[in-house]
Design a protein around this nucleic acid. Structure first.
Length: 576
RNA sequence: GCAUCGAUGGUCUAGAGGUAUGACUUAGGCCUUCCAAGCCUAUAGCCCGGGUUCGAUUCCCGGUCGAUGCACCA
């Protein structure tokens, strides 16, 4: 009935007009890839983040941390972003087009381009024709384009720093502190909501692809051999549409199945990943994503990061952009902790006690320091340490210390065979990472909430936002701004504020106009003070979606509105 | 980043080498006893920089932003 084909344009228009999202620093000309959240957008975004917190922090018990958005170079050397987050590019000398060197080389029929050096790529490109202008490329320089914003820390040192391309690294670099905080037990998790930065080459698509964006990420550290979620029962029967590798390859529809089935049949790698798929589904639906516009797509083997065991994207279908990746849920194994261990030289393991100590046979090489000392002098200690980690030969042991080799005859050490009780072992946890793009969630919610209908021959624009995320929670109107109705309405507004409800008072213009104003920004309920209020202390509550009204005593309003916002009851169950 | 097209009050829009039309919105007032009613009044605009010109919002060049395609990215 209503043409929704250019919903994106309508959303863009509405969000600009009504203060949800603005182009940034417009007075100097906006910059692509950056946006400002206006008053209502900031409020809505905050509410969405708070729903996220209610799941991850309150329900799951993973506390939130807050790390700097600028990180020193070592972090991103370890994470692989310094090296791996850059594309090797070149500029076609003829048409000035910037192109991915490896893609063009592969397109030219040469295999293995992804592992080539810049020089090799440059050489390989020379005889290939440019896919943009079809000229033979010829001599060209291949250069790395890193998606990270680089900066320097401090005035003199010129120490290199980067704006973080994801919030995740903070949870990894704080691993040992977090482990202690959670009293040395697995599993535990920490989350972070904050800004991340990627210097996209050509961002478009409004809120979908930004150079500065908000992520909400959880890093859950689990025992590598225990990927059964302790509270899996919560979501075992929860059904989710799964667009697995097989369905994608066979071009078939997503399978709807319970998480129990998905894990048992091996479609999802383990209970942890399945658990957060289901949780994500529940979360996205709660903020206003329609279930029929939501699916979980598994990464195909060639797009799966080499270290990841399994990865699923929650995709939300947009009228304008198709299926948009909005959340990524990955089992990253111990890749990140291992990388930081290597880069920092620190330990990123957890000591796990066995239930009963393990009795093991152990053979130790113990040096006779009384003999080694006089013989090797200053090097005796190093030699003894080296002995401890070697396997003895029949007559002695040859050890390497520094660049020197020493043959240590067998009478200078003793071999001790012993049985010892091992109380436990050092384990490097695996990481389960649900990573949410908050801006994309905001856009999805706006797009899917947008509706138009004809009421009495007039178009009504309404954002059918869930009350939980609507920026303004309730509006209060006096039917007439006189006869004392206005002061009663103002008083009610104050009372609502005292109940921590964001209520907006409006007495300007006809009552119908005021309803429509609130409809357009998604305010779920409007309260009207009329002449009856003066007689019997009742007001009407009007529901945004049905436009229906019920009359209730004014002193019950705060309680009813709170219940409606929190979803403890629905509008249709309100009785006078 | 390349190519094409575009940019006029908050929004939509008319327009011409001589500072701009109309509607909606917003604000104030009148009116109005529940869904953008009516009347009066007001606020508010030619994307930025340079060039041509007596004069440029209009023509030219460059930039910014946006749309589309390519490329890139997720």
């Amino acid at each position: 009935m209503i043409d929704m084909s250019d919903v994106y344009d309508k959303i863009n228009d509405l969000t600009k007009r009504r203060g949800f999202v603005w182009p940034t620093s417009e007075c100097y000309g906006a910059v692509a890839g950056f946006i400002d959240y206006g008053p209502l957008g900031s409020m809505m975004k905050r509410r969405i983040e708070d729903v996220w917190r209610s799941f991850y922090v309150i329900q799951e018990g993973y506390y939130e941390i807050e790390c700097p958005t600028i990180g020193q170079e070592s972090i991103f050397i370890a994470s692989g972003h310094v090296k791996g987050f850059s594309d090797k590019m070149f500029q076609c000398p003829h048409c000035k087009e910037y192109l991915r060197a490896d893609h063009v080389v592969e397109g030219g029929g040469i295999a293995g381009a992804s592992t080539m050096s810049e020089e090799q790529l440059s050489a390989a490109l020379a005889p290939i024709t440019c896919p943009a202008c079809e000229e033979v490329i010829g001599t060209v320089e291949v250069f790395p384009f890193n998606l990270m914003f680089q900066t320097t820390i401090g005035p003199g040192s010129q120490r290199s720093g980067y704006l973080r391309p994801e919030t995740a690294q903070g949870m990894f670099t704080d691993f040992q502190r977090l482990l202690r905080f959670y009293r040395d037990k697995l599993p535990f998790g920490a989350v972070q909501i904050g800004k991340s930065y990627r210097n996209e080459i050509s961002p478009r698509q409004g809120m979908i692809r930004l150079r500065e964006f908000t992520q909400a990420e959880a890093e859950i550290f689990v025992h590598p051999d225990e990927k059964d979620h302790p509270r899996f029962a919560r979501y075992a029967g929860y059904e989710v549409p799964l667009f697995g590798q097989t369905q994608q390859q066979e071009n078939s529809a997503p399978l709807v199945m319970t998480m129990r089935e998905a894990v048992d049949t091996g479609i999802i790698a383990n209970e942890y990943v399945a658990y957060y798929l289901a949780l994500t589904h529940q979360l996205l639906v709660r903020i206003g994503v329609k279930p029929d516009r939501l699916r979980f797509r598994q990464h195909l083997p060639d797009e799966l990061a080499h270290y990841a065991e399994d990865c699923w994207d929650a995709e939300v279908r947009s009228d304008r952009f198709g299926w948009v990746e909005t959340v990524g849920i990955a089992d990253r194994t111990d890749y990140d902790l291992r990388a930081h261990e290597k880069q920092s030289g620190q330990s990123f393991t957890v000591f796990i006690q066995y239930e009963t100590p393990k009795r093991v046979q152990r053979r130790r090489v113990v040096a006779d320091m009384g003999a080694l000392g006089p013989k090797y002098r200053g090097k005796a200690k190093d030699i003894a340490d080296a002995l401890a980690t070697t396997v003895p030969g029949p007559d002695g042991i040859t050890v390497t210390v520094g660049s020197e080799q020493f043959f240590v005859p067998k009478d200078l050490y003793k071999i001790i065979e012993e049985e010892v009780d091992l109380p436990g072992e050092e384990v490097r946890p695996h990481v389960i990472e649900p990573s949410y793009g908050i801006d994309r969630m905001c856009y999805a919610v706006l797009e899917q909430s947008y509706d138009e209908e004809i009421v009495d021959g007039e178009e009504r624009r309404v954002l059918r936002l869930p009350p939980l995320v609507a920026p303004v929670q309730v509006a209060v109107f006096p039917l007439m701004n006189r006869d004392g109705l206005d002061s009663i309405a103002e008083q009610l507004t104050h009372t609502l504020h005292e109940h921590h409800i964001l209520a907006e008072y409006d007495d300007s213009g006809a009552i119908g106009r005021r309803y429509r104003r609130q409809d357009e920004i998604g305010t779920p309920f409007c309260i009207t003070v009329d002449y009856d209020t003066r007689e019997d202390q009742t007001v009407t509550i009007r529901d945004r979606d049905s436009m229906a009204q019920v009359r209730v005593p004014v002193d019950r309003v705060p309680g009813i509105i709170s219940d409606l916002i929190e979803g403890k009851r629905s509008f249709s169950t309100i009785c006078p």
